[in-house]
Design a protein around this nucleic acid. Structure first.
Lengths: 126, 126
DNA sequence: CTCTCTGTTATATCTATAGTATAACAGAGA
DNA sequence: TCTCTGTTATACTATAGATATAACAGAGAG
C-alpha cells in the first residue's frame, strides 16, 4: 500500500503542514516503513499541483522533527528517530488544550478513551 | 480562584491564540464559571502588555467558537454553547494527528490513556 | 563525457496573517 | 458630564506561506 497525497486548498492549514501530517499518519498506519523513499520534491509537487519549495519545506520540517533523513542522491527516506522525552512533553501539551475543549462541551473521559481506541485501531494497534 | 494570564512572547503561538487557550483551560479547570466576566479588552491588554486589538481578536474567536458571549455593557461573559457533534468531529481530527505522532515514537496506547487520566484529573474530573 | 536525476541555495514577488498604533463612535451607568 | 464598555476604521510594519525562475553540486546511467 502506498501513500496517496491529497491537498485541500480551502483548508486553513498550511499546505506543507498538510503534507507533513499525511506522511506522519502514513507512518503510523504502516503504509510506509523505515527505509522507504518518499517521492522527490519535484515529483510530489507536480503530483499534487503545488510548488517544489512547498514540498521541500514539508520534508525539511519532517527532517527536523526526526521522521525522515534526506539523502542528496535518493531523496527523503523514512527514518524515525525522535527524542521520546521531548515528544512526550509535546504530546501532553497538545492534549492539555485538546482535552480542555472537550471538557468544556461535556465530552466525558470515557468518550475520549473510546476515541483513542478507535484511532489507535487504525494505526499499528499497539 | 481567578484567571492569571501569562504571555510567552518567544512562543511561535500567536498571542491571541495563547489567550484563547488559557481561557478555555481556565473554563475546563473551573477557575471561571458560566456567567463570569472576563477582563475588558483594554484592561487585559494593559495587564499583559499587548495591544487592545489582539485581546479583542481573542475574544472574537472565543465568541465564534461558542465559549463566551460579548455584552456591549459588561464585556465578555463566559457562556459555553457549543455544537457537540461538530466539536466531537474536531476533537477526533485533532486526535488523529496527535496520536499518529505518538504512535511513531512507540508511545503505547496505555501511556496515552494514562496521560488522558492525568490531564482530566486537573479538569472537572468527569 | 554527457544527460538526467537528486537536494540545495538564492532571489524576487505576492498574499494573508499577526500585531501595533491612533482615533473615533455609540451605548450604558454613575 | 465623565467614564467605562465593545466596535469600527484606517494605517503601518513584520512575518509566514506560497509561487516562480534560476542556478549549483553530487551521483548515477548511458
Amino acid at each position: 500500500m502506498d501513500l496517496v497525497f491529497e491537498i485541500d486548498f480551502q483548508s486553513d492549514e498550511a499546505l506543507y503542514t498538510q503534507l507533513c501530517n499525511q506522511i506522519i499518519i502514513g507512518i503510523a498506519k504502516e503504509m510506509v516503513h523505515e527505509g522507504d523513499a518518499l517521492p522527490s520534491v519535484r515529483q510530489l509537487a507536480d503530483e499534487v499541483g503545488i510548488n517544489m519549495h512547498t514540498v521541500n519545506k514539508a520534508y525539511t520540517v519532517l527532517k527536523q522533527e526526526g521522521y525522515v533523513k534526506v539523502d542528496r542522491r535518493k531523496g527523503a527516506i523514512i527514518a524515525v528517530d525522535i527524542d521520546k522525552l521531548r515528544a512526550l512533553a509535546r504530546t501532553k501539551e497538545d492534549l492539555r488544550i485538546l482535552l480542555a475543549r472537550a471538557s468544556c462541551m461535556n465530552v466525558s473521559r470515557e468518550e475520549i478513551h473510546r476515541l483513542i481506541d478507535e484511532i489507535y485501531e487504525e494505526y499499528g494497534g499497539c
